[in-house]
Design a protein around this nucleic acid. Structure first.
Lengths: 256, 256
DNA sequence: AAATTGAATTGAAAGTAAACGAAAGCTGCG
DNA sequence: CGCAGCTTTCGTTTACTTTCAATTCAATTT
């Protein structure tokens, strides 16, 4: 039997997943009365987490935004968690690093709570958020213009800010990784900023689940051979694996 | 037998691991009364380490926090909401503004969702977060060094970033407001940044509940006469009211 | 456009489990 | 000893859910 918060949590998830829900459907699903469901829906509407409609509720934009992140999370969550955990282990106490925005790097951030004296620069709101609990990690942020879709900051200001520092390591999440073209992304400003990140970092670590290989976005960040280290899962295609090894890239492959 | 700190630590781990816990379950597990467990859970909820629910607690994340049944027991919350709403009405479509960090300015942010073409620069993580829903508001962030206690960014980088812009209005929340000394705060870097904010804005609007009058912090931001507009509640002391009026400051007083 | 109709919503009352508050009891420490 | 910080007990209060009746709503049919 779920309590109020859990039930409402589920409702929000459900509304997000299927766009709309109906009162009787929910009542049956949770084994409570329709009145209770109506109370829930009204409360959630009040908080802006969904929009009430007669007979049920529909998703609100806001949610779609906030959860678009969460959802991506779901698809490969398990993998990303493990990649994040491993990537975090590559960071030593006392180092200064850049954490790119994105769900994978967010997982890295979550695993930095026990690191000491680490300085983390990021352009991702979610990353900064995850680092709030890491009491001995200093958090810097690039600032810039917020792209709400990805909860991250871009723009000339962010780039200028980065150029005034130098970091030990950069942990980069990517949209696409092809062996000939290199690392790519869909959003131009992101590519620009990522390029600056690469410039001001001694070591470039790419963390990505294997689904990103042989995919390419429009905007190139850097070529594959410039990457120092890749953390990925065992789904990595064989040809890319050998190509990276030949290029002298250090590969860490996490078994699924 | 575990001591309080150890027990609470265990509780947090447990909540994290199994998503939810229940009071009787924990009471039995640790061999203490349910009242003690409830105290623990309430403490941990305050600290944001979990979210209290009736009968137990659930793991903390963005969603559950919003769902959290208990609204902040901040006595001034109601006032702040109203001040925020009013201050937001001072902003016209198309203007560019700075929103200082803080709970009061966060309330302003929440009321900007229906403004169009507004550009908001902020140094507050919570402000940025609140503006995620405002689809036609562009959000800029100063970046800088994160001060976790106040969820906001400070430092030279933030100041430099601001100096490259010019804004129509600055909405400032303050720690202290004295008629002779002016606006003050407790944290030096905040004072420095706020001073830059004042420099790059045409109009300075201070939003504060009346409890801040005749309190002073260590670091002065600007003197009272430099403020263009003050939004506060009717608890403002009479002498400050007349002093501000004489200084040509525009006063908006919200009735309690 | 008015009337009809069945579903959805609202409001009030009641039951139950949980939470709260105050006072008293423990425990360890200077 | 006496204080401070937890913890317990116990009586009271609150929160949540349900039931049931009354009302509103939306979409037909007349």
């Amino acid at each position: 039997m779920l309590n109020t918060i859990e039930r409402r949590h589920e409702i929000v998830q459900l509304v997000f997943k299927q766009e709309r829900v109906q009162v009787p459907e929910l009542a049956q699903l949770f084994g409570v009365s329709t009145v209770t469901i109506r109370n829930d829906l009204n409360e959630l509407d009040e908080k802006g987490l969904l929009v009430r409609s007669r007979g049920g509720a529909v998703a609100s934009n806001r949610l779609t935004q906030e959860l678009s992140l969460k959802e991506k999370h779901d698809a490969n969550r398990g993998i990303k968690e493990r990649l994040g955990k491993f990537a975090a282990s590559l960071i030593k106490d006392g180092e200064s690093i850049i954490l790119d925005s994105g769900t994978t790097t967010e997982e890295v951030a979550k695993n930095l709570t026990n690191h000491h004296g680490v300085v983390v620069m990021t352009n991702g709101l979610n990353v900064a958020h995850s680092l709030l609990n890491a009491s001995s990690v200093e958090v810097l942020m690039t600032g810039g213009t917020l792209r709400k879709k990805s909860l991250s900051f871009y723009g000339r200001q962010a780039e200028q800010h980065l150029q005034q520092y130098h970091f030990d390591k950069l942990i980069l999440g990517v949209d696409g990784f092809e062996k000939d073209i290199g690392i790519t992304t869909h959003f131009e400003l992101e590519a620009l900023l990522n390029r600056v990140m690469c410039e001001v970092s001694r070591e470039i670590i790419v963390v990505t689940d294997s689904s990103k290989f042989n995919r390419k976005g429009v905007h190139k960040i850097i070529s594959a051979s410039e990457v120092n280290t890749v953390v990925t899962d065992s789904g990595i295609p064989a040809d890319i694996k050998t190509a990276l090894e030949n290029a002298g890239v250090q590969l860490h492959i996490i078994d699924l």
